[in-house]
Amino acid sequence: MSASAIPVPPVVRRAVAGDGPALGELDRATWSTLHAVQPRPQPPYAPFFDEHHPPREILVAEMPGAAGEREPAGYIRFVPPTPLPCNTHVRQIQGLAVAHWARGRGVGRALIRAACVAARGEGANRMTLRVLGHNAPARALYESEGFTVEGVLPGEFFLNGRYVDDVMMGRPLAP
């Protein structure tokens, strides 16, 4: 195998304010009713980061792109699910996107693992998420990373002319 055929793993880091435009573009490029319940974003686009979605909540995965330069291949947003003091031990994934060109290269898995490590570093001992019932690829990835179904809201969303379940998943964050 030649050196150029060796897969390059993603580098995961905390987002910075300057990542906003690239992450906004990535978010729009990956929008789909497979995972989104909000309508497709339309111009003028809102900034990716704002006072409710700061860079500190986001991890970015970078990989060499078409020109060989490192570029954002994906991101994950994980936050405390509520502001309640009794809930500070939990973090919730509230966004995961992988660029089309980077799919199948371990980006989503690397982001989930890095988010779990970072959440443990913040004192969390549990990670949760919500995923649409028809999003089989995402559900399979989460299950392979130790998440289990903890609840289902049947027919919670009406997307593309059909009712879609909202699936709650979670896992412990053991050291």
Rank of each mutant, 00 (worst) to 15 (best):
M1C: 09
S2W: 14
I6H: 13
I6A: 13
V8H: 13
V8N: 09
V8A: 11
V8F: 10
R13Y: 14
R13I: 00
A15P: 08
V16E: 15
G18R: 09
G18P: 13
D19V: 01
G20N: 05
P21S: 05
L23A: 01
E25H: 12
R28P: 04
R28S: 06
A29Y: 04
A29K: 10
T30S: 11
W31V: 00
S32G: 04
T33M: 07
L34N: 09
H35A: 15
V37A: 04
V37W: 01
R40W: 05
Q42L: 12
Q42E: 15
P43G: 08
P44E: 05
A46C: 06
A46K: 14
F48D: 05
F49R: 02
E51I: 13
H52F: 07
H53W: 14
P54F: 11
P54G: 09
I58S: 09
I58H: 15
V60I: 07
V60L: 12
A61V: 06
M63T: 11
P64E: 03
P64A: 09
P64C: 11
G65H: 12
G65L: 08
A66R: 13
A67P: 00
E69I: 00
R70Q: 12
R70A: 13
A73I: 12
G74E: 10
V79I: 14
V79H: 08
T82V: 09
T82A: 12
P83T: 10
P85V: 12
C86N: 10
C86F: 10
T88G: 12
T88I: 10
R91V: 15
Q92F: 03
L96Y: 03
V98E: 08
A99Q: 05
H100M: 00
R103D: 06
G106C: 05
G106L: 02
G108V: 04
R109L: 05
R109A: 13
A110N: 11
I112S: 06
A114N: 05
A114H: 02
A115E: 07
C116K: 03
R120I: 00
G121N: 10
E122Y: 14
G123E: 01
G123S: 03
A124P: 03
N125F: 11
M127V: 04
M127R: 02
L129C: 07
V131W: 01
A136F: 02
A136I: 03
A136V: 09
P137N: 06
P137C: 03
R139T: 00
A140H: 14
E143F: 06
S144I: 04
E145A: 02
G146D: 08
V149E: 03
V149R: 03
V149L: 02
E150H: 06
E150D: 15
E150F: 00
G151C: 02
G151L: 01
V152I: 15
G155T: 02
G155P: 07
F157T: 01
F158L: 13
L159K: 01
L159T: 01
N160Q: 14
G161P: 01
R162K: 11
R162Q: 02
V164A: 01
D165Y: 00
D166I: 00
M168K: 10
M168P: 00
M169Q: 07
M169V: 07
G170P: 09
P175F: 15
P175N: 10
